[in-house]
Design a protein around this nucleic acid. Structure first.
Lengths: 214, 214
DNA sequence: TCCGAATGTGGACATCGTACACAAAGGGTG
DNA sequence: CACCCTTTGTGTACGATGTCCACATTCGGA
């Protein structure tokens, strides 16, 4: 039996190859439609064509899987924010550019929340303890997490002279609070189902408030 | 068998009397420690000393029960905000009073989020559709929902001349976004476990930002 | 070549939400 | 007071889920 083609293995599922990532991918699909509570261990293994218990070779828990999916969703958010910045028209005015990059952080965040509510909720579903958004698994293409992207944009404002240096410390929490709050209200709060155009306007107003009040 | 004391009914559980409220109360207890996902139908009926299916005479769904619990938690939030306002020292300065009442809305909101994270998360757990925070079941002692309390405080700012009238429309969403966002970050975001003192400071900074940027 | 570690499978169990059929208590009408 | 219908709880049952345990297979070195 040296030939392998007719010597078919009794089980073709062994050595899936990359089951861990397959499960995360399945989890993302589930989270995409249904949010964190839809990330069901058995459903993920089913989608990966594998027995439920196989998951326990790669994750200690359903919670561990959910955590990994959450990180992946956070990375999606980071990429959306990066894309928003990358789509900015080029400018020679350094101050205008810094300001545009700052605003793009917020609009990208809000756009992701609206376009991918399931992933957004999953990204911020924190199952237990943790200092979530700081891990590198939550980073986007540039290697920055959403929080770091915000920090960089704020630094840009300071460099451009648009934000006094003494106002810089802690500013990320002010900006993040306002934008995240609006996102939460849009995704599953009383502002849910707002027309995308109106939601965009609301986002601009919130960012205006941040710029004034920061 | 005219006497009732020895004529004991075969089942003492019939006609609980107020099972619906007992279940909501049990649900609040569960939500208090464990948030919305801890509101388990069978656990609530158990605590009420009743068979699981009895719940279906008062709620169509586990979701309906959770919704009712959520409304009750929202009412708790409203009462906390009212208490925060009631504890304000009396002032003859009308403008200062209006401003203090406005800030108390925010600090009460944030205090509730920190002191009752389970109930806070439950209050904002929206299971499906809904225009949640507007129902009268979510109101506090004064009959106002959290959202209405905020609106009243903003009206007070306008009357006191602290907020230009043309800035009033939509202002609740700006203020709410900022405060709610901080609350979310404190309750299960990266700011979780912040020392109450630091959390209070962060809250004051956010409210400062709102006052400047609104 | 052989053997241990890694990876999947199968079966089992407690728990959960919920459907269906039944039982008892209460209230109204005669 | 008797009767019946509605309301409210009970009991049993089913499928789904997370997770535990024992077993099987495959892979990668010694």
């Amino acid at each position: 039996m040296t030939a392998a083609e007719n010597n078919k293995p009794k089980r073709d599922t062994y050595r899936h190859g990359d089951l861990r990532n397959a499960l995360i991918e399945a989890g993302l699909e589930l989270a995409h439609q249904g949010g964190p509570e839809a990330v069901v261990l058995r459903a993920a293994t089913r989608q990966a064509g594998v027995a439920p218990n196989a998951a326990y070779r790669h994750f200690t828990d359903r919670n561990a899987l959910l955590h990994a999916v959450s990180q992946a969703a956070m990375a999606h958010l980071a990429r959306t924010m990066e894309a928003e910045q990358a789509a900015l028209p080029p400018t020679t005015d350094a101050a205008a550019a810094a300001r545009a990059r700052f605003r793009a952080v917020g609009t990208g965040y809000l756009r992701f929340a609206q376009e991918e509510p399931g992933l957004f909720r999953t990204a911020f579903h924190v199952p237990g303890d943790m200092t979530h958004a700081a891990a590198d698994t939550a980073a986007g293409a540039t290697g920055k997490t959403p929080f770091e992207l915000l920090g960089a944009a704020l630094d840009g404002l300071v460099e451009a002279g648009l934000l006094p240096e003494d106002r810089r410390p802690g500013a990320e929490f002010l900006a993040w609070s306002a934008v995240h709050g609006l996102a939460a209200l849009l995704v599953d709060g009383p502002l849910r189902g707002l027309h995308p155009t109106q939601a965009h306007d609301a986002g601009q107003h919130v960012i205006d408030m941040i710029e004034r009040g920061i």
